[in-house]
Simulated assay, not measured.
Amino acid sequence: MYSIHKTVELPIPMEKAWDFFSRPENLSTMTPTHMNFRILNGKPKPMYAGQLISYYVSPFKGIKVLWVTEITHVTDNSFFVDEQRIGPYKLWHHQHFIKPIKNGVLVEDIVHYAMPYGFIGKILNTFLVRKKLRHIFEYRSKKLIELFGSYEH
């Protein structure tokens, strides 16, 4: 089992942050363009527990993957969880927290994932997947700051 933990502070009110993050159609905005992210269903409805979201993504050039996630938990203006139902991982559990801070919000992502294919999956994670996921979450933070501005302490 592997994990990723990433935070970004944004100078926007909670309601604006929740409105953005709770809309599946905004996933493509936060995904690197070279990954050709395309949502198949799940939009434009606001998020709800039990919602299935299907999309195609190209994690590596020339590889197109169907990914289906289920929103398993939602606490409005605070927290939601998506879990992979179909996709490239043996397990994918992604917690999204949006917490109020002075003059903005703290957006926190905690991902736990497991690779398929035993030892081969472990090697793939070490040399490819971990780097790719770090890049995706770095891109996401930069894009959010581009969209909403830098947080001033």
Rank of each mutant, 00 (worst) to 15 (best):
K102V: 11
P11K: 10
Y139N: 10
V107F: 07
I4Q: 05
H5S: 11
A17F: 04
T75M: 12
E9N: 15
K131Q: 11
T69F: 00
N36T: 12
I101Q: 01
T69N: 00
S54G: 04
D19A: 12
E138I: 02
L52H: 03
R140I: 05
N125R: 09
V105W: 02
K143E: 04
I86K: 15
P100R: 09
V111D: 01
I98W: 02
I63P: 06
H34K: 03
L10R: 14
P11V: 15
Q51Y: 11
P46G: 15
P32Y: 01
F37L: 02
K99G: 06
V57F: 07
T69P: 01
F97A: 07
P32S: 05
S78R: 13
K16F: 01
E108K: 10
W67T: 10
A17C: 01
R130F: 13
E9L: 15
G87S: 15
A114K: 14
D76P: 14
K64P: 03
V74F: 00
H34G: 00
P13N: 11
L147F: 05
Y89L: 12
R23A: 08
Q51V: 14
T7M: 03
M14A: 09
T29P: 02
E9M: 09
P116W: 13
R134F: 13
N103G: 05
L128D: 05
T69A: 00
V8H: 10
N103E: 05
G104C: 08
K16Q: 13
S22F: 04
F21S: 12
M35H: 08
H153D: 14
V111A: 00
T29W: 06
P11T: 05
S141E: 14
P46M: 05
H5C: 15
K6W: 03
D76T: 14
K102S: 08
D19L: 09
T33R: 06
Y151M: 13
T126P: 02
W92M: 08
N36G: 13
K122V: 01
V74M: 01
Y139F: 10
S150F: 04
S22V: 05
L10Y: 04
T69C: 02
K64Y: 07
M115A: 12
T69E: 07
I63T: 11
Q51S: 06
G62E: 02
D76G: 08
S58G: 00
G62H: 04
R130I: 09
L147K: 04
K143L: 00
P11H: 13
H73G: 03
P59S: 01
R130A: 15
I136S: 15
Y89M: 12
N41E: 15
P13I: 07
T126H: 02
K143V: 03
I4S: 08
W18S: 07
K90F: 06
S54K: 09
S28N: 06
S3E: 10
L66K: 00
Q51N: 06
K16W: 10
T31S: 15
E108T: 14
S58V: 02
K131V: 00
K64N: 07
F119V: 09
M47I: 09
N36D: 09
R85K: 10
P32T: 01
K142T: 13
K64E: 06
V111K: 05
L147N: 07
F148H: 08
L147G: 07
L133W: 03
E146G: 00
E25V: 02
D19S: 06
F97N: 13
P100D: 11
